[in-house]
Design a protein around this nucleic acid. Structure first.
Lengths: 110, 110
DNA sequence: CGTGTAAGGAATTCTGACACG
DNA sequence: CGTGTAAGGAATTCTGACACG
């Protein structure tokens, strides 16, 4: 994943089975699978079909659990998470613009 | 664990099943269980008895795999790992001594 | 010593469905 | 809409043992 640094390797590596995710989040398997169906979470699959989650997924699920407790619906959560994704792109765009300006600045001096 | 900072949480959390560890390390279940019997690795257990490993354990197993390929025996590996453990204690001791000196220094000025 | 394998049992995970609301 | 549950099958993991060397 080009969007993550080497240091994040363990955060995004999908190695945790659903049972362990249940223990870590306090959610039921049913809930976790449902949030997947609603496109809030994206586990990988083993050849045989078993779901594998990352620590990052676990963090996301805990946020989802909080919001659901507050009465939020999965459809709203979906929008909210889309926004975060957009913000991330915005940040990358800003970085590029700043780099562009720096390049322009130094190119002028050469 | 008092020996690890908050940032290491994901490195030491035991959440990975033996099957996934096999994929990650290229070792067989048999080998991984054997290295446990030889006191080289210390997974946690679920209530039912299933082994759970951390990313740190996976790293250790990859080192073990390298050494075993080089013809080293588990008994030698055991000693080598004991040394590392000792060094860690030495480091902590040094830290404490330095802190002690600093404390003495500032206490003098008070 | 280190590792492969077949054996049998117990727990895990999966999917699709019925249920309530 | 979100989640519980019983159903049945397939893969996972566990232990102790036989095997080779």
């Amino acid at each position: 994943m080009a969007t993550h640094s080497q240091k994040d390797a363990y955060l995004y590596k999908k190695v945790i089975t659903i049972g362990t995710v249940c223990e870590l989040t306090g959610l039921s398997e049913r809930q976790i699978r449902y949030y997947e169906k609603r496109k809030l979470i994206f586990p990988e699959r083993t050849e045989r079909g078993n779901r594998k989650y990352s620590f990052s997924d676990v963090e996301t699920l805990m946020e989802i659990a909080d919001k659901m407790e507050d009465g939020m619906q999965t459809s709203e959560l979906r929008k909210e998470m889309q926004k975060k994704q957009d913000n991330r792109y915005d940040s990358k765009m800003k970085e590029r613009m700043i780099k562009g300006q720096l390049n322009a600045y130094f190119n002028k001096r050469d």
